[in-house]
């Protein structure tokens, strides 16, 4: 048997544990905020999603959606529903993940002398540009919690770009904000997609001279 690389063991374990187990997360500064309320969890994770795919304020005074744009973003596309989807084993971990992000926000604010209100989650209290800066720093850092942010980002994309909580045809029929934003094509009446017109239908380039009879390279 080949020699086992101890560093590889540690890296694999920490990567897995960070994503899989709340226990992995309680080893972080988030422990102090582990009793954070569900309301704060939703707000913090919503603000994270809004940083990745921004949307407009949902109502006057909306703090979660920073209102960096007009029109829908990940929150309007139902990202919180996807995070809580029974299809994902994520729901029990969300308070810990939100607390971890809020702990990051506290640290971020502290070194920049940004005053944070005690009345809302620290990450939510950051401006959109500060949220963006903080989130940028979560990636490529090699931090133990980086896999958490990677998975969470993929889920944000699943909510906006794929309407992952719904069948696609139904989501389109209901005007899902993300699919509408992409201008995802409509299906046939039976809910299946077919494209009768799909090709310019004419030669558009010379073929490579060494093409084989089956169409492969030589």
């Amino acid at each position: 048997m080949s020699t086992i690389d101890r560093r590889a063991i540690l890296k694999a374990l920490t990567a897995s544990v960070a994503v899989l187990a709340a226990g992995g997360l309680t080893a972080t500064p988030a422990a102090a905020a582990a009793d954070v309320s569900e309301g704060w969890t939703t707000q913090t994770l919503g603000a994270f999603a809004d940083t990745l795919i921004p949307g407009e304020h949902r109502f006057p005074g909306d703090q979660v959606c920073a209102g960096a744009v007009t029109g829908p973003g990940a929150v309007q596309a139902g990202v919180i529903d996807v995070m809580n989807s029974p299809q994902l084993p994520l729901a029990p971990l969300l308070p810990e993940i939100a607390a971890l992000l809020d702990a990051r926000a506290v640290a971020y604010a502290a070194v920049r002398l940004i005053w944070l209100s005690p009345s809302r989650p620290p990450f939510v209290d950051l401006s959109f540009s500060h949220r963006t800066d903080l989130v940028s720093g979560l990636f490529g850092s090699g931090d133990l919690d980086e896999p958490v942010w990677q998975v969470m980002s993929l889920i944000v994309g699943i909510a906006f770009d794929t309407a992952g909580q719904s069948d696609t045809a139904a989501a389109l029929a209901q005007g899902h904000p993300g699919l509408a934003w992409l201008r995802f094509p409509e299906p046939d009446p039976d809910g299946l997609w077919r494209f009768g017109d799909f090709s310019y239908g004419r030669p558009l380039a010379a073929l490579h001279p060494a093409t084989t009879p089956s169409g492969s390279p030589a």
Partner: peptide, 10 residues
């Protein structure tokens, strides 16, 4: 299925 709902293609 022609669907991106979680629980189908994944």
């Amino acid at each position: 299925s022609h669907s991106m709902r979680l629980g189908t293609y994944n």
